[in-house]
Amino acid sequence: MDRDLNLGEMIITRLINIAGYSAIIFVGMIFYFLLREGLPTLNEVNFGNLVSNRWYPIEAYFGILPLLGGSLVITIGATLIAVPFGIGTAVYLAEIAPRWVREILKPLVEVLAGLPSVVLGFLGMLVLAPFLRKYLQLPTGLTAFTGSLLLGGMAIPTVVSVAEDAIDAVPKSYRDASLAIGATKWQTIWRVTLPAAKSGVTTAIMLGVGRAIGETMTVMMVSGNAPVLPGGIRALFKPARTMTATIAAEMGEVATGSVHYHVLFFIGMVLFLISLLINITASFVVFRQRQRQERILS
């Protein structure tokens, strides 16, 4: 009897171990493959070309700066939209909305987070882009700004959902205590509830940014796909192209093993590095807060 139990225990432990290690192995393999296909770039294309501002692969101009710039502009734009609106909505849902509104809106927001990006891109092309062209009087509605708007909109549900959970988890007693000494509802939210939910809200923002920077389909459809290095604020209202869109658009037509092919993988490496940096920053922030809390509690 005892042996059976131990055997079952052992099998389950092994299975869990395998599952855990396989995740590490898969990530390692992806990383290896990325490096194998991407690193030859450094031999084949000279560095000056790589950091130039011209992306024109047919003529062997492989400047990735315009793509990096495009990603940066669109992501920053999307973050600027998603963070205030997302946290605002989360605060409204958790603190202000009557219960029935919240019970309807919260699931709706979460459904919105699962909307396929092609659908959003389609809406963006047919509705948003013509609208912007008409009212901002632009030569084309397919601009970095359009991409930012849509990506921001896509990130909002993620931010709302995670941030609302974090705010909701703040004990009611904090609010009572703050109100009982004569704070208004707004002072309580701003000075007590939000700071108490800080680490959850940080996670929400990071997840939102992560979603924006990795998004491909929508930006490819609505931001115009012109690999131009953005300069100044006006670049926001011109077409732009992101790293992800470049890989998605060109990978299908490139000859395997060619220079162009390697450069596309090199771009993938850069993307990987960026999201790694964001993740490390985020977990560092959360880790430091947790460490502080543990110090406090012990």
């Binding site: 004990p171 007693s173 904090y174 009572d176 205590a177 703050s178 007590v192 700071p195 108490a196």
Partner: peptide, 9 residues
């Protein structure tokens, strides 16, 4: 209150 509620500050 019954349980001491210090604010997170």
């Amino acid at each position: 209150f019954a349980r001491p509620v210090v604010l997170p500050m």
